[in-house]
Every structure is written in C-alpha cells, then in structure tokens.
Design a protein around this nucleic acid. Structure first.
Lengths: 224, 224
DNA sequence: CGGTTGTATGACAGTTCCGTGACAAAATCC
DNA sequence: GGATTTTGTCACGGAACTGTCATACAACCG
C-alpha cells in the first residue's frame, strides 16, 4: 500500500484530499502544520508528500527544503497560487511537481504514479557501479574484477554499461541491439555471442554466471 | 550541455520554445511531426523531450508510448488543453510531466531541472507485486518466494503476470488462452497443465494451493 | 451411492532457445 | 603494409520448454 502524507492547514481541503486519496487506494494521513508534517515523516516515512505552500509558522518552501534534506521522498506541491515565481521557487527548493488547486484527484493520482515510475530510473552518469566483486567505471572506461582491471573491448563495454544502467531489469535482445548497436533489426544471436565473450572475462565461472544472467525467452540482466 | 528535443507542429510555438530554451542554456532542436521526432530521438537521443499532444499523423499519446518503449528519457507534455482526461492519459502513456500552454520558460526550465534531479535517484528496489510470501517483478523478470528467486519459464511467467494483474478476480481458461497465448480458441487443458507446473514452483504445498486457486467451473484466480 | 463432469499430474516427443567454437571480414595498431 | 585484435556470421549440440495425451483423482448431482 502506498502511503501519502498531506501537509495542509485548511481542515476542509486536507480532509477532502485524504478522502479522495483513500478512494484511489492510497493510505493517506494528514498534518496541519509543517512542523507536524516533518515530525510524522521522520517517524514513519510516507511514499509521497503533498504540501501546501501557505502554512502557518514554517512555510511550505522551508518545509520542502527540510523534507528534502532527510529524504528522497517525492514531493508534490498543491497550491492555490498559479504563479511562475512560486512554481520555480518550489521546484528549486526540492519539490518534484507543482499542481494548482482545485486539482482533479485523477490527475493527482496519475502524477503520483508518474513520479513513482520516474524514481525508479537509474541514472546514466553514475561514476562507478559495483556488482559484487565487479566494478564498472563509465567515466574511466574501465572494468575491474576483484580490484584487478579486466580488458574488455568497446562493444563489450557498451553492452555492459547498458546492462548496468538498467541493473536488475531484463533487457531483451532487441532492446540491446537497438541501444548498443543502434540496429533497428538484426540477428539476435549477435547479442548472445557478445554476452558469452563478456562472461568469459567478468564471471569467475562463466558456465554459471552470477551477475550477467540469462532469462530464457526474455533476455539478459545484470544483477548484484 | 543538456539537449532538448521539441516535438511541436506549430512553427511559431516551436521556434519560440527553441529560442527560449537556448536562452536558458539548453541545446534545443525541433521536429514538426511525431515521426520526425521519433527518428531524431533514435538517431541522436536528447536528454529531454517536450511534446505537443495535437500532432498531425501520429498523435502525441502514441508518440509518447513509442518514445517510452525505447528509452527512459524524461518526457514533458506541453499542451494547450487543460483537461484532466488528457493529463491522466498522457501520464499513463509514459509522460513525466504535463504543462499547459502558454508556459513560462522559467517554469519549464525549473520542471526540467526537477526531472533531472529525480532521475538521478538510484532505485535499488525494483517494484514488485506481493502476494503473501510471493513476489512478482515484471521488470526484473523474476519471481521470488520468501525472498528466494524461483525459476519460472516464460509462459509460466506470463500466466502469473496475467493472473496478478487481475488479482482477486477469476479468469476463465478462455480468457487466459487469449491473453497469455494469444489463441482465439484452443484446448483448455493446456491452461491446467501450466497452472499445475506453476503451482509446483510457487506454492509451498502444491496440493493445497493458497494463492493460485481453482474455482471449479469458472477458472483460476490469484489471491493474497 | 453411482454416474457425470471437471481438474490434477506424469510421461513424452517435437520444438524452441541458448552457449560455444570456428572462421572470415573489418578495424586497429605498430 | 603486415600483424593483431575485434567484430559479426554461421552451424551444431545440448538443454530447456511446450503442448498433447492418458490416466487418476475430486467435486458435484440427482
């Protein structure tokens, strides 16, 4: 169950939001002040936080900054003010989205889903990734196993980076052909061959791969 | 330099957006149709894509779906229509944000920054559906029982996903044949066999299934 | 309770899918 | 320009998977 914390001082709006969110299948709970919201989020973190900008005491911007300091939780501002300065300031403070009241609950729900999806995306520009005794440094263009450099070719390296970028997720041979080779179509066996060669270099026992595994009928994935 | 692709058929709006984005320090370039945009993104991927919904030929929704199929690039819809249905549909199709024209360039820029920041969050946890001690992760192409990976075949996996997608509801053998195998008609015993094999793997006591249960005369369902 | 219908399961053969070694073309190095 | 490395193609063998069938079992019904 996805939990949502709503920080909003207006009782009626807060309650309406909570009800609507519960209707959508979220576990929703509220806080009337920034201080209370921060405390609740610290004690039992929600998966999303909705926050109003105009709050008594600590204002919404400061609330966002403090939430963001502790946490990567997706923050959505729900504000009555449709003003570029507010929007920019809120996003700069660390919010992920900004919607204007009154907001359709379906839209809000869709935006929360989009944020969750986005949150899963692994960044391309991670300096070095570690998979057990395997290290991949995209910037240095280098692969190490147990601290020792491994000589991989350019194609193998690109393939490995592509898999590392989506670590834990299956990539089909088609996707790999497109992303690594730029082929729109082509012989999928090509992928097999390069995966095989890569395994010879990075897996201690290439016959029983531990990181670069095959998912029969689906494709390959790199796992920790 | 951050590159942005703008897919928008109205020349004046597109040029205005491109100029404004360049002013903000982006490398911006445009496409007047979805087809052209998809091609450009495939040939030389941008870091962000802005897309209008009303495009000649292939419409914006389809364009989003195709972009998303190949790529994790952040997609922002820039549309003249402020309509909940459009917003929800666009986000469901795979967009990450939706802004209404006319849009302040500062806001757009702030939203792009927010998306980049969000994208950097490394997601260790691949999302999974949970049924008691059973976990199903479509992205990882993996099924776990009590935390331990279970090897299932592609057909079994598809079958399980289909049942999970309609968790708690009965699916008839006909429906499963159609959805999992794509058969319009066929021997319903086939479903039994695969359900049986799946039970051997995911149920602690396959003789007394707790999650993947039979509803005599109706079909099968997956329950928590 | 016996008949009927619906479901579970083991065996099996045909098929699909994957890993690998060999080899030639292409690229790179020196 | 020749040697070396890298890349892509091919073919083969083996492993894994799929669908069919037969049989046994369980649930339902009058």
């Amino acid at each position: 169950m996805t939990a949502v914390l709503v920080i909003e001082d207006d009782d009626r709006i807060r309650l309406a939001l909570l009800l609507a969110l519960e209707e959508e299948g979220y576990a929703a709970y509220g806080a009337a002040t920034a201080e209370e919201g921060l405390r609740r989020q610290r004690d039992s973190p929600a998966d999303h936080v909705l926050v109003d900008l105009m709050l008594p005491g600590l204002d919404g911007f400061e609330c966002i900054r403090r939430l963001r300091r502790d946490d990567d939780v997706p923050i959505v501002v729900v504000s009555a003010r449709d003003d570029t300065h507010d929007i920019v300031a809120a996003l700069e403070a660390g919010a992920d989205d900004y919607v204007v009241k009154p907001v359709a609950i379906k839209e809000l729900s869709a935006r929360l889903r989009a944020l969750r999806r986005r949150g899963r995306v692994v960044a391309a520009a991670v300096p070095a990734q570690v998979f057990g005794e395997l290290e991949i440094s995209a910037e240095a263009g280098e692969v190490r196993r147990a601290g020792r450099p491994v000589a991989v070719t350019r194609t193998e390296f690109r393939l490995l980076c592509e898999l590392a970028e989506h670590a834990g997720r299956v990539l089909s041979r088609q996707q790999l052909l497109r992303r690594v080779w730029g082929y729109e179509t082509g012989d999928e066996r090509l992928v097999d061959v390069h995966v095989g060669r890569l395994r010879q270099k990075i897996e201690p026992d290439p016959g029983n791969p531990r990181h670069l595994v095959t998912l029969r009928g689906l494709g390959y994935k790199l796992q920790r």
